[in-house]
């Protein structure tokens, strides 16, 4: 957890609107899948803040960031050239736990949530886990990294418009596979990164099938180190905490949370955030 500078080796489009940046760092650099870097996209103060980017993969002396070019900050990042330096904090946050007690893993990614699953797929397959990536997008043009995930196991693809693969969401696709009886959910773990509605549906699915699930959540973030309390979510209180929800920071206690931990209703209902004394439990 330090402020570092790496040298950009490569920064180029790998798919329509999506870039991969490869950065050279000292060989001592290491990360665990699911962790992120807080990246400075420009030397100026406009745009002001760093951008949290999940680490897609790392090898000896280098790591890869895969990001969608949308908005001014990401456009500025995409214009950085090889040879320039990249200022970042990290690796930050809690990684996905690599569960070896169950032989099968389903890695569910939606839209730009796919990149961190790449390093995760590699780490799990190295441990002998049977990996299935379930990748979803609105249309086939939005599907990311299929060719890069392929070597680590099976691949299931879902598009909302049915232009390729399963017609529906990645979560519906997984549900159907489980329902058809071919996937042995009781031996499986779910890992996911993607938009909030996807994570929420997946959380519900994981609990219904009684499968451990790990969900990487994104909230609007400023400092990245736990000081500003911007990127918070509500976690259900455990039995020892009198059932009272706790405010947790996605940058420190997250971004990965276990299925069943998060109080999704809190995104919609201000009452959950009202005074502690009156907070419903």
């Amino acid at each position: 957890m330090v402020k570092l500078v790496g040298q950009i080796i490569e920064n180029r489009p790998i798919e329509e609107g999506t870039f991969e940046m490869i950065v050279a760092v000292p060989p001592t650099f290491s990360y665990l899948p699911g962790q992120f870097l807080h990246v400075r996209v420009a030397d100026s103060y406009d745009p002001l803040l760093r951008r949290p980017l999940s680490i897609a993969w790392a090898a000896s002396g280098r790591f890869g960031l895969i990001y969608r070019v949308s908005g001014r900050g990401m456009t500025m990042l995409s214009r950085k050239r090889s040879g320039e330096s990249l200022d970042f904090l990290g690796p930050l946050g809690q990684p996905y736990p690599l569960r070896t007690d169950r032989p099968r893993a389903f890695l569910v990614g939606g839209g730009i949530g796919v990149p961190p699953l790449l390093g995760l797929a590699e780490a799990l397959s190295e441990k002998g886990i049977s990996v299935t990536a379930v990748i979803g997008a609105q249309t086939k043009d939005g599907l990311l990294l299929l060719d890069r995930l392929q070597p680590f196991g099976k691949l299931l693809v879902a598009t909302d418009d049915g232009s390729v693969g399963f017609a529906g969401t990645a979560v519906q696709c997984l549900e159907e596979r489980f329902g058809s009886g071919g996937e042995r959910p009781q031996e499986s773990v779910i890992y996911a990164c993607g938009p909030l509605p996807m994570l929420r549906a997946l959380d519900e699915l994981a609990q219904r099938w009684r499968i451990p699930g790990y969900l990487s959540v994104e909230e609007s973030m400023a400092c990245g180190v736990g000081a500003c309390l911007s990127c918070v979510v509500l976690r259900r209180g455990g039995p020892g905490e009198s059932g009272r929800p706790q405010v947790v920071r996605t940058c420190v206690e997250g971004p990965v949370f276990a299925s069943g931990e998060l109080l999704w209703e809190a995104w919609e209902q201000p009452k959950w955030w009202e005074d502690t004394e009156e907070t419903p439990t």
Binding site: E219, S220, V232, P270
Partner: peptide, 16 residues
């Protein structure tokens, strides 16, 4: 007393 704070999103970037 402890305070839970406001409902997210709690932060949005603006020009500079």
């Amino acid at each position: 007393k402890p305070r839970l704070g406001d409902l997210p999103p709690r932060m949005v970037e603006t020009p500079a």
